[in-house]
Simulated assay, not measured.
Amino acid sequence: MSELNFGTDLFSEFDRLQRQMAGLFGGFPSSIRSGPFGAFPQINIGSTDDSIEIVAFAPGVDPQKLDVSIDKGLLTISGAREPSPPEATGDDMRTYAQERFIGTFRRVIELPQHADPNKVTAQYINGCLSVSIGKRETSKPRAITVQ
């Protein structure tokens, strides 16, 4: 009978195995709410006492081509990023590699139940779409006086 000796703790070996498997299959989301690898636009989601803050990093997108909507607890951000005009890149240029996303996109974000769809603001500044969604009054923290 052979004895297994990993040389380190078992959890670090599982972590190493998970990283190898993720590399083999292109990466898996860390949770059910995680977006697909390489999704555009990349987003940050945070919270304050009064609101849920979402920032979508979408440089080069025409703000007129952005659509933000909320339906049944889902925030949808969609739009299109056009290719650079030919005069900016040169007519005789041949592309060997392209990492910049071009085309239509759509991101859907599940909102928490305490998000109020009637209190939404969105603005696009310097390539970032900032969406602020107010929280329902009943979900806001409040101080309780001890008697």
Rank of each mutant, 00 (worst) to 15 (best):
M1A: 05
F6E: 10
G7I: 02
G7R: 01
G7F: 03
T8G: 12
T8C: 15
D9G: 01
L10R: 09
L10S: 15
F11M: 07
E13T: 00
F14V: 09
R16K: 10
L17M: 07
Q18H: 06
R19W: 05
Q20I: 02
M21C: 13
M21A: 15
M21E: 12
G23F: 00
G23S: 01
F28I: 05
P29G: 13
S30M: 13
S30A: 14
S34E: 11
G35K: 03
P41H: 05
Q42A: 09
I43T: 08
N44G: 14
N44V: 14
S47C: 02
S47W: 04
T48H: 08
T48G: 10
D50R: 08
D50V: 06
S51R: 14
I52Y: 12
I52N: 04
E53P: 02
E53Y: 04
I54H: 07
I54P: 09
A58E: 13
P59S: 03
G60L: 10
Q64V: 00
K65Y: 00
K65Q: 03
L66T: 14
I70K: 08
L74C: 07
L75K: 06
L75I: 06
T76K: 10
T76V: 09
I77P: 15
I77N: 09
S78N: 10
S78T: 06
G79M: 08
R81W: 00
E82W: 04
E82N: 14
P83Y: 03
S84Q: 10
P85W: 15
P86I: 14
E87L: 11
E87K: 06
A88I: 06
A88V: 09
A88K: 07
T89W: 02
G90V: 00
D92V: 12
M93N: 02
M93P: 03
T95H: 01
Y96D: 04
Q98I: 00
F101N: 07
I102V: 14
I102E: 07
V108G: 01
V108L: 01
I109T: 02
E110M: 08
E110I: 06
L111I: 05
Q113W: 08
H114L: 08
D116R: 07
P117V: 10
N118T: 12
K119H: 09
T121H: 08
Q123K: 08
Q123H: 03
Q123G: 06
Y124H: 02
I125M: 14
G127S: 02
G127H: 01
C128N: 13
C128P: 04
C128S: 14
V131Y: 04
G134P: 08
K135L: 05
E137V: 02
R142I: 08
R142E: 11
I144C: 09
T145Y: 05
Q147G: 15
